[in-house]
Amino acid sequence: MTAKPYNPDPHAHPGLHLIALFEASKGLLAVLAATGLEILGPLPLQGAISHLIRRFNLDPDHGALPSLLKMISPDAVHMAAAGIFAYGLLHVVEAWGLWRAKAWASWLGCLSAALYLPFDIYAIVRHPGWASWSVLAVNLLVIAVLARDLVRRKPRR
């Protein structure tokens, strides 16, 4: 059985295009979130967390939410926004590369999707259900499509 030679035409890879659209949407949402975080600043976050503490009658001095509330400052918001922006920009660049069927983008996508696998498995153990299994299935499908693309690029002997 002989394999088809790799087609360098980016339009011959609909799977890559679908993943590129998915990555672009994740990246654009992250960039929008970072922008919103910068525009709004720490006050709305502090207000929302204070509301949650009051709403659920939590101890205002101990626990995860009060600790988070104490950590929110303008500097922390700037750092979080910068990290979210970098994450979004990375996904937008990856999406561009996948749309153009670049090998480096397939490598980047494969590695970044694989980094999520331990968290996906942890989510299944902690919260078994269709949502956790669906996220794992999507990540495994992305890895399979990108790995297949990389294998097809190898020259045949």
Rank of each mutant, 00 (worst) to 15 (best):
P74L: 07
P74G: 06
D75W: 11
A76S: 10
A76L: 06
A76V: 09
V77Q: 00
V77M: 01
V77N: 00
V77G: 00
V77L: 03
H78D: 13
H78Q: 14
H78F: 09
M79W: 15
M79A: 15
A80Q: 02
A81Y: 02
A81C: 03
A81W: 05
A81I: 09
A81G: 01
A81R: 02
A82M: 07
A82W: 06
G83L: 02
I84P: 02
I84Y: 02
I84V: 12
I84K: 00
F85I: 10
Y87H: 14
Y87D: 13
L89T: 06
L89Y: 03
L89D: 00
L90C: 10
H91M: 03
H91G: 01
H91V: 04
V93N: 00
V93A: 03
E94R: 02
A95E: 03
A95W: 05
A95S: 03
A95D: 00
W96A: 04
W96R: 05
G97H: 03
G97K: 00
L98W: 08
L98Q: 01
R100S: 02
R100C: 02
R100T: 03
K102Q: 09
K102L: 11
K102T: 03
A103E: 10
A103Q: 13
A103I: 15
W104H: 07
W104Q: 10
W104E: 07
A105C: 04
A105Q: 04
S106P: 11
S106D: 13
W107M: 10
L108T: 10
L108C: 07
L108W: 07
L108K: 02
G109W: 10
G109S: 06
G109R: 08
G109N: 03
C110V: 08
C110D: 08
C110K: 10
C110Y: 12
C110Q: 13
L111C: 14
S112E: 00
S112R: 05
S112C: 04
A113K: 10
A114G: 07
A114K: 01
Y116A: 15
Y116S: 15
Y116C: 15
Y116F: 14
Y116M: 11
L117W: 02
L117G: 14
L117K: 04
L117Y: 01
L117I: 12
L117H: 08
P118Y: 10
P118K: 09
P118E: 04
F119P: 08
F119E: 15
D120R: 07
D120V: 08
D120P: 06
I121E: 12
I121W: 14
I121S: 12
Y122C: 12
Y122N: 14
A123H: 12
A123L: 13
A123K: 13
I124A: 06
I124P: 05
I124R: 04
V125F: 12
R126N: 15
H127S: 11
G129Q: 01
G129Y: 05
W130I: 15
W130Q: 13
A131P: 12
A131K: 06
A131S: 12
S132K: 03
S132G: 00
S132W: 03
S132Y: 06
W133I: 04
S134T: 03
S134R: 01
S134C: 05
V135A: 09
V135M: 06
V135E: 09
